[in-house]
Amino acid sequence: MSSEWPDTLAAAPGQYAACGRGEEHGLGVHWEVLLGITGKDFTIIAASKAAMRGATVLKASDDKTRALNSHSLMAFSGEAGDTVQFAEFIQANIQLYSMRNSMELSPSATANFVRGELASALRSRRPYTVNLLLGGYDEIADKPTLYWIDYLASLAPVPYAAHGYAQYYCLSLLDKHHHPDIDFAQGMKILRMCSEELKRRLPIDFKGLMVKIITKDGIREEEYADDQNVAVP
């Protein structure tokens, strides 16, 4: 009965301002858009193309994804140096596993490996501040997969997911329109609804979305037009 934690845990909300989810990140992190949608035989991963540092857009064609193996793709957002460093570290280790064992890790195994690395970093001297979406296609179960992982290494398998402020705009849309057995066209239609809503309501320009698709045939990039204007009421 001597632990400090449970007492303080139930304390008033707002007390954890300094350690609340992501509140210690620099401005800009939450504006990065990560979206994931699964359907009947595919997973869509979409990530904003803007690379922002403070108030500046450094790049408008940033790729916030890395392919871990032929059937899993990781999208990431978070603190500047951490993101790519962590993603490529994971990418290299997953590829090393494939080479050593002449087989590819399943998406669920990949997700748990990523979580494990992030979790052990969390209690190290310098944790990674990276939020992740892991889209994949499980070739054994013949099912698309999507994993939501935040910088605290909370892992959840989900039918659809988002990170940052995009969550507040998109999850409600997805709650209403998503079904587990939607086909690819319907999936893209829902994604379009999400991206239009983000364009309409996010106060900054995230420079459009880069869209990648994972199916049983592997990972491909999908052409995604972002030039039309969205009417704001």
Partner: peptide, 27 residues
């Protein structure tokens, strides 16, 4: 974020429930 995050884990005859910080529930 998710409506499918079980907090009970079974180890043979024993069942362990874990509440608190989600990352530590998994760890």
């Amino acid at each position: 974020v998710s409506n499918n995050f079980p907090k009970i884990f079974s180890y043979g005859d024993v069942h362990l429930g874990l509440t608190g910080l989600a990352t530590d529930v998994s760890t």
